[in-house]
Design a protein around this nucleic acid. Structure first.
Length: 271
DNA sequence: AATCGCGCCTGACGGC
DNA sequence: TGCCGTCAGGCGCGAT
Protein backbone atom coordinates (compact mmCIF):
# COMPACT_ATOMS: atom_id res chain seq x y z
CA UNK A 1 0.00 0.00 0.00
CA UNK A 2 2.21 2.77 -1.19
CA UNK A 3 1.63 5.96 0.73
CA UNK A 4 3.27 9.23 -0.13
CA UNK A 5 6.73 8.35 1.22
CA UNK A 6 6.67 5.13 -0.79
CA UNK A 7 5.67 6.93 -3.96
CA UNK A 8 8.40 9.49 -3.42
CA UNK A 9 10.86 6.66 -2.85
CA UNK A 10 9.77 5.05 -6.10
CA UNK A 11 10.11 8.39 -7.89
CA UNK A 12 13.66 8.84 -6.67
CA UNK A 13 14.48 5.25 -7.50
CA UNK A 14 13.30 5.29 -11.10
CA UNK A 15 14.05 8.90 -12.11
CA UNK A 16 17.81 8.46 -12.72
CA UNK A 17 17.09 5.50 -15.00
CA UNK A 18 14.47 7.34 -17.05
CA UNK A 19 15.49 10.97 -17.43
CA UNK A 20 17.17 11.59 -20.76
CA UNK A 21 16.20 8.17 -22.09
CA UNK A 22 14.09 7.61 -25.16
CA UNK A 23 11.10 5.31 -25.14
CA UNK A 24 11.20 2.59 -27.75
CA UNK A 25 7.74 1.19 -27.10
CA UNK A 26 5.16 0.56 -24.46
CA UNK A 27 3.59 -2.85 -23.96
CA UNK A 28 0.21 -3.08 -22.26
CA UNK A 29 -0.90 -6.57 -21.31
CA UNK A 30 -3.81 -5.57 -19.09
CA UNK A 31 -5.78 -2.39 -19.74
CA UNK A 32 -8.33 -2.86 -17.00
CA UNK A 33 -6.88 -0.97 -14.08
CA UNK A 34 -8.90 1.39 -11.91
CA UNK A 35 -9.69 3.13 -15.17
CA UNK A 36 -8.96 1.43 -18.49
CA UNK A 37 -5.68 2.48 -20.04
CA UNK A 38 -6.28 4.29 -23.33
CA UNK A 39 -5.67 2.13 -26.38
CA UNK A 40 -3.85 5.03 -27.99
CA UNK A 41 -1.29 5.34 -25.18
CA UNK A 42 1.49 3.14 -26.61
CA UNK A 43 1.37 4.96 -29.92
CA UNK A 44 1.37 8.33 -28.21
CA UNK A 45 4.53 7.79 -26.15
CA UNK A 46 6.71 5.81 -28.55
CA UNK A 47 9.91 7.59 -29.56
CA UNK A 48 9.54 10.31 -26.93
CA UNK A 49 12.26 11.28 -24.47
CA UNK A 50 11.74 11.44 -20.72
CA UNK A 51 12.44 14.91 -19.35
CA UNK A 52 11.47 14.73 -15.67
CA UNK A 53 9.89 12.38 -13.18
CA UNK A 54 7.78 14.38 -10.75
CA UNK A 55 5.08 13.76 -8.23
CA UNK A 56 1.82 15.38 -7.15
CA UNK A 57 0.15 13.70 -4.19
CA UNK A 58 0.57 9.99 -4.92
CA UNK A 59 0.56 10.50 -8.67
CA UNK A 60 3.85 10.10 -10.49
CA UNK A 61 4.20 12.56 -13.38
CA UNK A 62 6.53 11.40 -16.10
CA UNK A 63 7.18 14.28 -18.45
CA UNK A 64 7.86 13.34 -22.06
CA UNK A 65 8.48 15.55 -25.10
CA UNK A 66 4.80 16.15 -25.81
CA UNK A 67 2.93 15.38 -22.61
CA UNK A 68 2.85 13.62 -19.29
CA UNK A 69 2.15 10.13 -18.06
CA UNK A 70 0.08 10.29 -14.86
CA UNK A 71 0.72 7.10 -12.97
CA UNK A 72 -0.88 5.97 -9.71
CA UNK A 73 0.26 2.82 -7.92
CA UNK A 74 -3.06 2.20 -6.20
CA UNK A 75 -2.43 -0.01 -3.23
CA UNK A 76 -0.41 -2.84 -4.68
CA UNK A 77 1.38 -1.27 -7.63
CA UNK A 78 5.13 -1.26 -8.11
CA UNK A 79 7.47 0.15 -10.73
CA UNK A 80 10.82 -1.49 -11.30
CA UNK A 81 13.71 -0.79 -13.57
CA UNK A 82 14.83 -4.02 -15.19
CA UNK A 83 17.99 -4.53 -17.21
CA UNK A 84 17.49 -8.16 -18.10
CA UNK A 85 13.82 -8.66 -18.75
CA UNK A 86 12.29 -11.69 -17.03
CA UNK A 87 9.19 -13.28 -18.56
CA UNK A 88 6.26 -11.17 -17.37
CA UNK A 89 4.12 -12.64 -14.60
CA UNK A 90 0.33 -12.52 -14.40
CA UNK A 91 0.29 -9.12 -12.77
CA UNK A 92 2.94 -7.42 -14.86
CA UNK A 93 0.55 -5.18 -16.76
CA UNK A 94 2.77 -2.58 -18.44
CA UNK A 95 6.33 -2.39 -19.74
CA UNK A 96 7.94 0.83 -20.90
CA UNK A 97 10.89 -0.29 -22.99
CA UNK A 98 13.69 2.20 -23.43
CA UNK A 99 15.81 2.43 -26.58
CA UNK A 100 19.01 1.73 -24.68
CA UNK A 101 17.67 -1.52 -23.27
CA UNK A 102 16.31 -0.97 -19.76
CA UNK A 103 12.61 -1.47 -19.08
CA UNK A 104 10.25 0.12 -16.59
CA UNK A 105 7.83 -2.60 -15.51
CA UNK A 106 4.54 -1.97 -13.75
CA UNK A 107 3.15 -4.73 -11.61
CA UNK A 108 -0.17 -4.37 -9.81
CA UNK A 109 -1.92 -7.49 -8.49
CA UNK A 110 -5.00 -5.66 -7.27
CA UNK A 111 -5.26 -3.29 -10.20
CA UNK A 112 -6.24 -0.26 -8.17
CA UNK A 113 -3.55 1.69 -9.97
CA UNK A 114 -4.10 3.88 -13.00
CA UNK A 115 -2.24 5.27 -15.98
CA UNK A 116 -3.25 8.33 -17.95
CA UNK A 117 -1.68 10.38 -20.69
CA UNK A 118 -2.22 14.10 -21.07
CA UNK A 119 -0.85 16.63 -23.52
CA UNK A 120 -1.80 19.62 -21.38
CA UNK A 121 -0.71 20.74 -17.92
CA UNK A 122 -1.05 17.58 -15.80
CA UNK A 123 -2.00 19.67 -12.79
CA UNK A 124 -5.16 20.62 -14.69
CA UNK A 125 -6.10 17.00 -15.17
CA UNK A 126 -9.42 16.11 -13.55
CA UNK A 127 -7.68 13.79 -11.09
CA UNK A 128 -5.25 16.44 -9.92
CA UNK A 129 -6.97 19.79 -10.23
CA UNK A 130 -8.93 19.62 -6.99
CA UNK A 131 -6.20 18.26 -4.75
CA UNK A 132 -5.22 20.04 -1.56
CA UNK A 133 -1.67 21.10 -0.66
CA UNK A 134 1.32 18.82 -0.38
CA UNK A 135 1.90 17.92 3.28
CA UNK A 136 5.58 18.79 3.08
CA UNK A 137 4.97 22.14 1.42
CA UNK A 138 4.65 25.51 3.09
CA UNK A 139 0.96 25.88 2.37
CA UNK A 140 0.18 22.97 4.66
CA UNK A 141 0.19 24.21 8.25
CA UNK A 142 -1.73 24.24 11.49
CA UNK A 143 -3.37 27.46 10.37
CA UNK A 144 -4.53 25.83 7.16
CA UNK A 145 -6.02 22.83 8.98
CA UNK A 146 -7.67 25.07 11.52
CA UNK A 147 -9.22 27.30 8.89
CA UNK A 148 -10.48 24.44 6.75
CA UNK A 149 -11.90 22.50 9.67
CA UNK A 150 -14.23 25.15 11.10
CA UNK A 151 -17.80 23.89 11.10
CA UNK A 152 -16.85 20.35 10.22
CA UNK A 153 -18.39 17.69 12.40
CA UNK A 154 -16.75 14.61 10.93
CA UNK A 155 -13.92 12.71 12.60
CA UNK A 156 -10.54 14.42 12.32
CA UNK A 157 -9.04 11.25 10.87
CA UNK A 158 -11.41 11.40 7.91
CA UNK A 159 -10.72 15.11 7.60
CA UNK A 160 -6.97 14.44 7.44
CA UNK A 161 -7.47 11.78 4.78
CA UNK A 162 -9.61 14.08 2.62
CA UNK A 163 -7.45 14.84 -0.41
CA UNK A 164 -9.06 18.25 -0.81
CA UNK A 165 -7.65 19.20 2.62
CA UNK A 166 -4.19 17.70 2.27
CA UNK A 167 -2.81 14.97 0.05
CA UNK A 168 -0.62 12.05 0.90
CA UNK A 169 -1.86 11.32 4.40
CA UNK A 170 -3.15 7.80 3.94
CA UNK A 171 -4.49 5.42 6.51
CA UNK A 172 -1.13 4.59 8.08
CA UNK A 173 0.25 8.08 8.45
CA UNK A 174 -3.06 9.58 9.54
CA UNK A 175 -3.09 7.18 12.49
CA UNK A 176 0.56 7.84 13.25
CA UNK A 177 0.29 11.62 13.07
CA UNK A 178 -2.77 11.69 15.34
CA UNK A 179 -0.96 9.52 17.85
CA UNK A 180 2.08 11.79 17.83
CA UNK A 181 -0.13 14.83 18.22
CA UNK A 182 -2.16 13.22 21.02
CA UNK A 183 -5.45 13.76 19.20
CA UNK A 184 -8.24 11.19 19.20
CA UNK A 185 -9.02 10.06 15.65
CA UNK A 186 -12.75 10.36 16.26
CA UNK A 187 -12.72 13.92 17.59
CA UNK A 188 -14.78 16.27 15.43
CA UNK A 189 -12.41 18.19 13.15
CA UNK A 190 -14.19 21.45 13.90
CA UNK A 191 -13.65 21.07 17.62
CA UNK A 192 -9.87 21.11 17.62
CA UNK A 193 -8.01 24.31 18.38
CA UNK A 194 -5.25 26.08 16.48
CA UNK A 195 -2.51 25.01 18.86
CA UNK A 196 -3.35 21.33 18.45
CA UNK A 197 -3.55 21.69 14.68
CA UNK A 198 -0.14 23.34 14.66
CA UNK A 199 1.23 20.35 16.50
CA UNK A 200 -0.56 17.98 14.14
CA UNK A 201 0.81 19.64 10.99
CA UNK A 202 4.27 19.68 12.50
CA UNK A 203 4.31 16.00 13.42
CA UNK A 204 2.79 15.02 10.07
CA UNK A 205 5.66 16.75 8.29
CA UNK A 206 8.21 15.14 10.56
CA UNK A 207 6.78 11.63 10.21
CA UNK A 208 6.47 11.84 6.42
CA UNK A 209 9.95 13.32 6.15
CA UNK A 210 11.43 10.55 8.28
CA UNK A 211 9.56 7.91 6.31
CA UNK A 212 10.92 9.26 3.03
CA UNK A 213 14.39 9.34 4.49
CA UNK A 214 13.98 5.72 5.58
CA UNK A 215 12.79 4.70 2.13
CA UNK A 216 9.12 4.20 2.84
CA UNK A 217 7.09 1.86 4.98
CA UNK A 218 7.31 -1.81 4.27
CA UNK A 219 3.95 -3.48 4.35
CA UNK A 220 2.90 -6.44 2.28
CA UNK A 221 3.36 -5.49 -1.34
CA UNK A 222 5.71 -2.57 -1.15
CA UNK A 223 9.32 -2.62 -2.24
CA UNK A 224 11.51 0.12 -3.60
CA UNK A 225 12.35 0.45 -7.28
CA UNK A 226 15.39 -1.76 -6.88
CA UNK A 227 13.45 -4.38 -4.98
CA UNK A 228 14.73 -4.07 -1.43
CA UNK A 229 12.25 -3.20 1.27
CA UNK A 230 11.94 0.14 3.03
CA UNK A 231 12.78 0.36 6.68
CA UNK A 232 10.07 2.43 8.27
CA UNK A 233 7.66 -0.28 9.42
CA UNK A 234 9.55 -0.72 12.64
CA UNK A 235 9.04 2.99 13.37
CA UNK A 236 5.25 2.79 13.35
CA UNK A 237 3.94 3.51 16.84
CA UNK A 238 0.30 2.45 16.59
CA UNK A 239 -0.55 1.29 13.09
CA UNK A 240 -1.13 -2.46 13.05
CA UNK A 241 -0.35 -2.73 16.75
CA UNK A 242 -3.75 -3.37 18.31
CA UNK A 243 -3.30 -5.02 21.69
CA UNK A 244 0.34 -4.08 22.00
CA UNK A 245 1.48 -1.70 24.71
CA UNK A 246 1.48 1.98 23.78
CA UNK A 247 5.11 3.11 23.48
CA UNK A 248 4.35 6.14 25.64
CA UNK A 249 2.06 4.95 28.44
CA UNK A 250 1.86 1.17 28.17
CA UNK A 251 -1.90 1.00 27.69
CA UNK A 252 -2.98 -1.44 24.98
CA UNK A 253 -3.29 0.15 21.57
CA UNK A 254 -6.81 -0.13 20.23
CA UNK A 255 -8.22 -0.41 16.76
CA UNK A 256 -11.59 0.57 15.42
CA UNK A 257 -13.20 1.32 12.11
CA UNK A 258 -13.51 4.99 11.28
CA UNK A 259 -14.95 5.91 7.92
CA UNK A 260 -14.65 2.31 6.67
CA UNK A 261 -10.96 2.29 7.55
CA UNK A 262 -9.19 0.49 10.35
CA UNK A 263 -7.68 2.98 12.72
CA UNK A 264 -5.22 2.56 15.55
CA UNK A 265 -4.85 4.77 18.58
CA UNK A 266 -4.00 4.90 22.27
CA UNK A 267 -7.11 5.67 24.32
CA UNK A 268 -4.93 7.05 27.10
CA UNK A 269 -2.64 9.36 25.13
CA UNK A 270 -5.12 10.59 22.54
CA UNK A 271 -8.15 12.69 23.32
C1' DA B 1 -20.86 22.15 1.03
C1' DA B 2 -20.12 18.27 3.84
C1' DT B 3 -20.60 13.60 4.63
C1' DC B 4 -21.41 8.83 3.80
C1' DG B 5 -21.13 4.50 1.56
C1' DC B 6 -19.85 1.92 -2.56
C1' DG B 7 -16.98 -0.66 -5.62
C1' DC B 8 -13.05 -1.89 -8.17
C1' DC B 9 -9.59 -6.49 -7.37
C1' DT B 10 -6.58 -10.13 -5.48
C1' DG B 11 -4.11 -12.50 -1.90
C1' DA B 12 -3.95 -13.79 2.81
C1' DC B 13 -6.09 -15.91 6.39
C1' DG B 14 -9.32 -18.46 9.38
C1' DG B 15 -12.68 -22.01 9.87
C1' DC B 16 -14.39 -26.39 8.84
C1' DT C 1 -5.62 -30.93 1.79
C1' DG C 2 -9.08 -28.10 -0.08
C1' DC C 3 -12.75 -25.02 -0.42
C1' DC C 4 -15.10 -20.94 0.88
C1' DG C 5 -16.20 -16.65 3.17
C1' DT C 6 -14.23 -12.43 4.81
C1' DC C 7 -11.35 -8.63 4.81
C1' DA C 8 -7.99 -5.02 3.55
C1' DG C 9 -7.10 -0.94 1.10
C1' DG C 10 -6.72 4.23 -2.31
C1' DC C 11 -9.78 7.08 -3.62
C1' DG C 12 -13.07 8.90 -6.98
C1' DC C 13 -17.84 9.14 -7.35
C1' DG C 14 -22.77 9.24 -6.73
C1' DA C 15 -26.28 9.82 -3.32
C1' DT C 16 -27.96 12.18 0.65
Amino acid sequence: MPELPEVETVRRGIAPHLVGEKIDRMIIRQRQLRWPISRTLPGAVANQCVHTVGRRAKYLLIELDDGHLIWHLGMSGSLRILQNLPTPGTHDHVDVCLKRGATLRFRDPRRFGSLHWTCVDPLRHRLLKNLGPEPLGEEFSGEWLYARSRGRSGAVKNFLMDSKIVVGLGNIYASEALFEAGISPVRAAGRIGLDRYRRLAEVAKTILGQAIKAGGTTLRDFTKAEGEPGYFAQELQVYGRAGEACSRCGEPVRSRIIGQRSSFYCPQCQN
